[in-house]
Simulated assay, not measured.
Amino acid sequence: MSILSLGVRDRLEATFWERHANPWSAGTRILAYPILMYAIYRRDAKLLTATAAFLAVNPVLFPRPKRTDNWLSKIVLAEAEWLDAGNKTMGLDYPNVLNVINIPVTIYAFASAVRRDPVGTALGTLGVMVFKLWWTDAIVKKTGVTGEGPKVPESAE
């Protein structure tokens, strides 16, 4: 099926996932979280605004990748497949329990940054990243996404 035969919403969603599968998109999004926590810790409104704006446009900022057979692309493609199959991201089942556990870890990281507790902010931020990457790695394994096929049709420019 060609992307052109899809409805507008489906085309936008396909374009979103195609572009977000660029390893620069996934990689910089992961690295933006510590910057976000640093901005909160430092009370740096400009950095906070810039980071939030970057996170908002990040999934469509980079072009569709030529290759997706790398870990960063696979975690994005697995997430798209996971959601497309009707799976949820929160729950007491594995791997979704990792996201549930991540809620208090995120609150702890945020509260530590607000309190300007450097150790708590660093540990909380690390914890958030560990649980998120653990979840994405688990759904790569559950979905079996390899990043190598079938090829997504080129979007109309």
Rank of each mutant, 00 (worst) to 15 (best):
G144P: 02
L47M: 02
S73G: 15
L55W: 05
F54E: 05
R9A: 08
A80Y: 07
L126C: 12
V57N: 11
K74Q: 14
L36F: 14
I101N: 04
F110C: 09
A113M: 08
G144V: 02
V97G: 08
V130C: 08
R42F: 06
T106Y: 03
G147M: 07
P63N: 10
Y41N: 10
M1N: 01
L133K: 06
A32P: 14
K141A: 00
Y94F: 15
D93S: 15
P95K: 03
D93C: 14
F16V: 01
S2I: 02
G120T: 15
P23Q: 06
W135Y: 15
R43N: 05
L36W: 10
N58M: 02
N96K: 14
G7S: 12
G27R: 11
T121M: 15
P104F: 03
S155D: 12
M90Y: 05
N22E: 09
E18H: 11
T89M: 04
R64T: 11
W71Y: 13
R67G: 00
V97L: 14
N87E: 14
V140M: 05
F110I: 13
P150I: 05
A45I: 00
V100T: 03
A56R: 06
A56Q: 07
N96V: 15
T125P: 13
G120Q: 13
A111F: 08
V128R: 05
H20Q: 06
A52T: 09
A56F: 14
V130Y: 06
R115C: 07
T121G: 08
W71E: 01
G144W: 07
M129A: 05
R115V: 03
R64A: 09
V140F: 03
A45S: 05
G149R: 04
A52C: 10
K132I: 08
R64H: 09
W82S: 07
T68Q: 08
I101P: 09
D69I: 11
E13V: 03
T121Q: 08
L123I: 13
R116M: 13
L47H: 00
A14K: 03
L77R: 10
D10P: 05
T51I: 12
L83R: 10
D117N: 15
V152Y: 10
T51G: 09
F54K: 02
N102A: 08
I107E: 00
I101M: 10
V128Q: 12
S112E: 14
P23E: 08
P153G: 02
P95Q: 01
P95R: 04
N99Y: 13
V105P: 11
K88L: 07
L36D: 07
W71G: 08
E13A: 08
L36S: 13
N22A: 08
R115N: 15
P63K: 00
K141W: 05
L48M: 02
A56K: 07
P153F: 10
D69N: 15
E157T: 04
G7K: 09
A53R: 00
P65H: 01
P65C: 03
L61W: 14
A80F: 05
W17H: 10
V140Y: 02
E79F: 09
K88Q: 09
L36I: 13
E79Y: 07
I30G: 06
N87G: 10
P150Y: 00
L47Q: 00
T15P: 02
